[in-house]
Design a protein around this nucleic acid. Structure first.
Lengths: 140, 140
DNA sequence: TCCACAAGCGAGAATCATTCTCCTTTAATA
DNA sequence: TATTAAAGGAGAATGATTCTCGCTTGTGGA
């Protein structure tokens, strides 16, 4: 996504387009592997040496509220941020802190079909995500 | 689970059976809706007014390490603890912080079968959990 | 039953991600 | 360009969790 697209996506939500916001969105897109607020801070500090961590958290939360980003929770309790992509699941590595996206429409459909026939009592499903834990294998 | 069973399950893992550990395990079982460390602390303080929070965290972590409990992460980043039950998924309420267990063997089988035929590249699956988010409906 | 001692506990300080406060700056719009 | 509500900066505050360290206790053997 080019800078102008970022500006537009922020503006489209009725939010002020500030250099900090653009830079933070750029950072998330560039880092793209579910960075933490700290990762974003580090990345951004080159161009914005004076940006406050509070600002980064505020901007990230604003983006999450306006559906420009998603928050992903990790086992250690540190939050990570993720571009909004349609229907994807997550692979969690048990050895490293790595998280990867996993798209599998067949599987998603399978699950959704299952719930077309079988309702959960007293519960209205809004979203279903798989947490697949395991190990990444180094090629070789 | 009766107190003696708790003592045995702790002992079976080669851990010392202390009144605090028994009480903490009892608390988790009695509270049973994925209590936080704080919930456990409150519950226990009646009988153990001097128990230290650090102790509770230590004991909970020890139990998790020895597979007597599971840790569940929440969106707010607070950890919750859960009895070890075979293959269950979680329902997360978007309005309250409530988490409920959801067992559905048909669904679990469906997913496992899917992955029998379709491997994920460079990833060895160890466990698959569904995170189903939505709203609990009040009966009426 | 009693001892020795490693494992466990208590108290409270330390850590660290995240949030809050308050004051200054800035983007948007007329 | 002036107005003003929204946004950012700095750093203190918060709060869950972890750590430290000296004291206590469960356990296994004598």
């Amino acid at each position: 996504m080019i800078k102008e697209e970022i500006r537009e996506s922020i503006s489209a939500k009725g939010l002020k387009v500030t250099p900090q916001r653009v830079a933070i969105m750029e950072a998330i897109i560039t880092l793209h592997n579910h960075p933490t607020a700290e990762n974003v801070a580090e990345y951004i500090k080159t161009n914005f040496p004076h940006i406050a961590v509070g600002t980064i958290y505020k901007v990230l939360d604003t983006f999450v509220e306006h559906n420009l980003l998603k928050k992903v929770k990790t086992d250690s309790g540190i939050m990570r941020y993720d571009e909004v992509i349609s229907n994807h699941h997550h692979l969690y590595c048990t050895e490293t802190e790595r998280i990867e996206d996993y798209e599998d429409d067949t599987l998603t459909d399978l699950i959704h079909n299952h719930f077309k026939n079988k309702k959960i009592k007293n519960f209205k499903i809004e979203d279903i995500k798989l947490q697949i834990t395991g190990k990444f294998e180094t090629a070789g």
